[in-house]
């Protein structure tokens, strides 16, 4: 609903903007190549037929790193003004982990917790 309040930028501001964009771009490219590398590493491990247990653990860890990169660098969670979004995601994640843990313990493993 706000008005578009566009004044031409001064030279200094323009330079500042360009610099910010450049740094942002570098961050993007770095995290993108890191993500590609992680994906490649995951496939490579499967191709090398390592111990499934190691592969599972490593893939989960790498997936987590990817998720964090994705959120922070590509979906701008590192930028200012994302406090609420971060709060919501952390709370949601907390609930989700609690739910999954419960499912694993009392539905999947199936033994009543007290009996082990």
């Amino acid at each position: 609903m706000a008005e578009l309040n566009q004044k031409p930028l001064t030279d200094v501001q323009l330079k500042q903007r360009k610099l910010e964009r450049k740094i942002e771009m570098r961050h993007h490219v770095t995290s993108f190549s890191l993500m590609i590398f992680l994906t490649f590493a995951a496939f490579a491990m499967v191709a090398l037929e390592l111990d499934p247990l190691i592969i599972t653990a490593a893939v989960i860890v790498m997936a987590l790193v990817q998720v964090i990169l994705q959120f922070y660098y590509f979906m701008h969670m590192k930028d200012k003004g994302h406090g609420f979004i971060r709060l919501f995601m952390l709370v949601g994640m907390y609930f989700a982990i609690a739910f999954v843990l419960c499912y694993v313990l009392i539905v999947w493993i199936g033994l009543p917790i007290g009996s082990v």
Binding site: V91, A98, I106, P112, I113, G114
Partner: peptide
């Protein structure tokens, strides 16, 4: 917040076990 941590009170008799 607490509202999300108590759902199994509807399922006490399903056999979750004493600890749960």
């Amino acid at each position: 917040f607490f509202g999300f941590m108590v759902w199994a009170h509807h399922m006490f008799t399903t056999g979750l076990g004493a600890t749960a």
